[in-house]
Amino acid sequence: MADHTHDTAPTQFVEASGIRFAYRRFGNPDASRYPIVFFQHFIGNLDDHDPAISDGFATDREVILFNNTGVASTSGLVPDTIEQMATDAGAFMDALGVTSADLVGHSMGGLVAQQVAIQRPDLVRKLVLVGTGPRGGVGIGEMPAETAALFGVTLPRQEDMWLPVLFAPTETSQKLGREYVERIVARKDRDASPFGEQVFAGQGAAIHTYGTTKDPAYAILKNIKVPVLVVNGTDDIIIATINSYILQQFLPNAELIIYPDANHGVHFQYPDLFVTHTKLFLDR
């Protein structure tokens, strides 16, 4: 897959634990660098990943994108716990023959990536957590009704729903958000598999339980021994930015980057900076 890019890599399938996982794998299989596996946000699928980020990493390492159980073109029912999502993700990586990788988790995907690091530490070399938080974090799973409503809008171009969810309301951020949307709609054979109510219900239940199950002193984070890079924007309205500070404070080996004038999709707003800073973290 070294000749493919984000927009040309074919969708492939692999069976694991009775699930037929959809994935795309491309980039430079440099034996000196670990593959990078992306964990997707709430109701996101393969085609909501940013080509500018995927291709930025693919210049010198393998990139793996996948739909977890029950999402879009992957079979099964969406689990209603983060723990089971992590179990399924581990089975997917096993089926691909990935024995260790760097994980990038955004939002709900960051919850799942943390849980993989806890349940399957053998699979994780380094962890990048974007716009996410710890188990029992501040406001996680308790989204205000007006914010939750942003996910249910119907638009002529549905991808435009991400503008108020992922980007700040400022003129600059919204402009960069529109550029992100143009990038993600550029792929000609986008995954048109519909999202049913089960995706919303399963993922919503998983996030609610994970967020409202309090972990005194965030003790569970001590089980994540690998180096972690935490990234967020100044005003994340989906998983409050304070949770990124909590991750950095309570993880044993974590550092934090906060980008200005940014919301929940900070890495989509600053893809070049994100790739540059993350590579510095991964390569040292």
Rank of each mutant, 00 (worst) to 15 (best):
I140P: 11
V185H: 07
R190F: 11
H4G: 07
G76S: 06
R25G: 03
P252W: 10
Q119D: 14
F281D: 03
D55H: 05
L251G: 08
G202V: 03
P51S: 07
A205Y: 02
A148C: 11
N223Q: 15
E179H: 10
T69S: 04
T209D: 09
D191F: 05
K225E: 14
P271C: 04
S244Y: 10
I36S: 04
Y245Q: 12
Q269C: 09
D261H: 12
G90F: 02
F200D: 13
K188N: 04
G137H: 10
A31F: 05
H106K: 10
N67F: 05
K126W: 09
A262S: 15
F26R: 02
T213V: 15
R24H: 06
Q174S: 08
G105P: 04
F26V: 00
I238H: 08
D236R: 04
P134N: 14
K225N: 15
G44Q: 08
G136E: 08
S100M: 06
S244D: 12
I224A: 10
D272P: 01
F39G: 00
V138R: 15
T11C: 05
Q119F: 02
G133I: 06
F57M: 05
R157A: 13
P260T: 12
G136H: 11
T69G: 00
S75W: 03
G97E: 13
G265T: 15
A217P: 01
R20E: 08
P169K: 14
G177C: 02
L46V: 03
D55K: 10
I19V: 15
K214E: 05
T132M: 09
W162V: 15
S75N: 00
E179Y: 10
H41L: 13
A2H: 11
Q249P: 00
F21G: 01
A117G: 10
T172C: 07
Y180S: 13
H41Y: 14
L103C: 04
L176M: 12
P134H: 03
V138N: 09
V98D: 03
R284F: 08
G110Q: 07
E146D: 15
P144A: 13
I43Q: 12
L256C: 08
G139I: 10
D160F: 11
Q115L: 02
G110W: 01
F151H: 08
G44T: 13
I207S: 10
D7K: 11
V116L: 01
D236S: 14
D50K: 02
I64S: 00
A217C: 02
F21H: 01
S244P: 12
E182S: 09
I184A: 08
I207T: 08
Q203T: 02
G265S: 12
Q203H: 05
V104C: 05
A91L: 02
V98W: 01
H277G: 03
G18Q: 03
H49S: 15
T69R: 11
